[in-house]
């Protein structure tokens, strides 16, 4: 027999029960919160694996104009310069994700949301954008405009 008095034994029992209760409570709360938290996060949708898109005939794309099209899930802006050359860039501003627009008069790319400005090569030249716009490759094959991802090599 140990030297513990009856009250001491009671106290030990109580603190033991308290620990069990608290652990149980925490476990219970966690088992409610965890599935709810997981539920709130949308499932990852598979990346639409697009390698290139066909924009139709060169002749049908006027000079000094632009078009925003979907490349996979992301919008990209395709510009035909005055010289007739093509340029394709991501269409969402690197600042806060607004869709940019092509300014014909100055051959620049402008974002109306916070007045961000890029040159025709997609380089950020004034305003808040922190990075240049990502580049896409434009090829002309049999009079057709084909936009594809840049080779990273």
């Amino acid at each position: 027999m140990s030297n513990l008095t009856k009250t001491e034994i009671k106290k030990e029992r109580r603190s033991f029960l308290n620990t069990i209760l608290k652990t149980g409570l925490v476990a219970w709360v966690a088992s409610v919160i965890y599935p709810v938290a997981r539920f709130l996060v949308p499932p990852k949708t598979a990346e639409l694996n697009v390698n290139n898109i066909d924009l139709g005939l060169v002749a049908e794309f006027p000079k000094n104009s632009s078009k925003i099209v979907r490349f996979g899930r992301k919008p990209i802006i395709v510009i035909r310069k005055e010289s007739g050359d093509f340029k394709a860039l991501e269409a969402t501003c690197t600042h806060l994700d607004c869709n940019v627009q092509f300014k014909k008069e100055t051959e620049q790319i402008w974002c109306a949301c916070h007045n961000g400005l890029y040159d025709i090569e997609g380089k950020n030249i004034s305003g808040p954008p922190p990075k240049p716009l990502a580049q896409f490759k434009v090829d002309i094959a049999r009079e057709k405009i084909i936009v594809s991802k840049m080779d990273l090599s």
Binding site: N99, Q101, A112
Partner: peptide
Amino acid sequence: DPLASAPAGIKPEWYFMFMF
């Protein structure tokens, strides 16, 4: 329209304006 450019003169609600 997810494929339109943000229109010129776009503004948030007035109470977010100072942050904008």
